[in-house]
Amino acid sequence: MSDELSPEATSFEQGYEGALRPATLAEFVGQAKVRSQLSLLLNAATMQQRTPDHILLAGPPGLGKTTLSMIVATELDKPLHQTSGPAIQHAGDLAAVLSALTPGEVLFIDEIHRMARSAEEMLYLAMEDFKVDIMVGKGAGATSVPLELSPFTLVGATTRSGLLPNPLRDRFGFTAHLEFYGTDELVSVVRRAAGLLGFGLSEQGIEEIAGRSRGTPRIANRLLRRVRDFSLVHDTPGDTATVQAALALYDVDEHGLDRLDREVLRAVVERFGGGPVGLSTLAVSVGEEAETIEAVVEPFLVRTGLLTRTPRGRVATRLGWEHVGAVPPPAPGAPPALM
């Protein structure tokens, strides 16, 4: 039997992430309340033959903000223009994007909170009145030239909604707050993705991956592909044993913690007696940037009850001590443990 993939399979593998994205709200798994709200907003705009209100999607990474922006364009049957906040560092960058939009087009700006301040101020007028003022010339001879824009729908995505200035946040007609997924929802995500990949994964294997995905579909899909690769290379069935062996190889434990998560938790417990320990000290002790610890590692450890943040620093909880195989200290006022 030839090991070469068919042209269709090769094309799917090359566009793996895109191929797993749902195309419509009906196909989108999870976020039921947001889906209902978006469906009402888009249907009302279509019935009134107008451009929908601007939409802000807020939430942690990997929950489907980019996918929802694509779905908005699909449901409206309009083209989608994608860019990101870091790519818009000058008002002229934004003016070039806005002036190229066609009537009704959906503009998606990822990480919108990272736009330059001058571009944000230009966006205020564009969102409200569909026009921008462009400065022509320099110094005393500079003049402001108004530029009319085609009506468009802005979909902004942010992982740090608190960093958005109030004037910009207030100009969005609808703000959706995406929540972490439950295990049942992730089971549906993994089952759908496995079917699209043509990977025969057992129900127990699906549940095993879902339980280690940290409430995030992007992580679930990534772990699924690693398990599929392991099964292919080692010629093993897609059962629980294969899932456990594959994820053990990639240092993902039964709770979804990876190597860095465990290093941070172990450092708090073993090097600093359970805390409190400051962020910068903790980062140095594990050889990582403080921003990485704060933005990538801490949220999951806090959400799972393994770590807490206090004014004095990070403190390991009783669950955190037990997770690294250490005996937690007795609670204040508790009698000493008997030997």
Rank of each mutant, 00 (worst) to 15 (best):
E254L: 15
L186C: 09
L223P: 01
V286D: 01
Q31C: 10
R50A: 12
F230M: 06
S213K: 04
A140L: 12
L247V: 10
L147A: 10
G137R: 09
A220D: 06
R191A: 14
G278N: 01
S202W: 13
L56Q: 07
S150T: 03
L80S: 06
F172T: 03
S2E: 13
G30Y: 01
R192C: 06
A176N: 02
A23N: 14
R309P: 02
A283R: 07
L338Y: 14
I109P: 01
V327P: 00
A58V: 12
R21K: 12
L307R: 03
K131Q: 14
D53S: 13
A119N: 00
V297Q: 01
T51W: 02
A58P: 11
A334E: 14
K33D: 11
A283C: 12
A295V: 11
L196S: 14
I293M: 08
D235Y: 09
E185Y: 07
L301S: 07
D261M: 05
P86I: 04
P237H: 11
E263W: 04
L56K: 03
G333A: 15
V296H: 07
F230C: 04
L20Y: 09
A9T: 15
A73W: 05
D235T: 13
L40M: 13
V72H: 10
A26C: 05
F174E: 09
V233S: 07
R171W: 06
V155P: 02
G139M: 00
Q244H: 05
S188R: 12
A95P: 00
V132A: 02
P311S: 11
D251V: 10
E148W: 03
E208A: 14
L232P: 00
I206M: 12
G275E: 04
L164Y: 05
Q89L: 05
L57T: 06
L80P: 05
A337C: 07
F108L: 12
A248Q: 09
G156K: 00
L338D: 13
E121I: 08
H54C: 08
L178H: 06
R314D: 04
V286T: 09
V297G: 01
H323K: 11
R309Q: 13
Q89N: 08
A241Q: 14
I55M: 07
G59N: 07
P7F: 02
A176E: 14
Y250Q: 10
T102E: 10
Y250A: 15
G62M: 09
G139E: 00
D133A: 12
V268I: 13
L5E: 14
Y181V: 01
V132I: 12
Y16K: 09
K65I: 06
H81A: 11
E148N: 11
A45L: 08
S39F: 07
A32P: 03
R35W: 06
P60F: 11
V297S: 02
L94M: 08
F152E: 00
E128T: 09
E203P: 02
M135H: 08
T24H: 15
G287M: 05
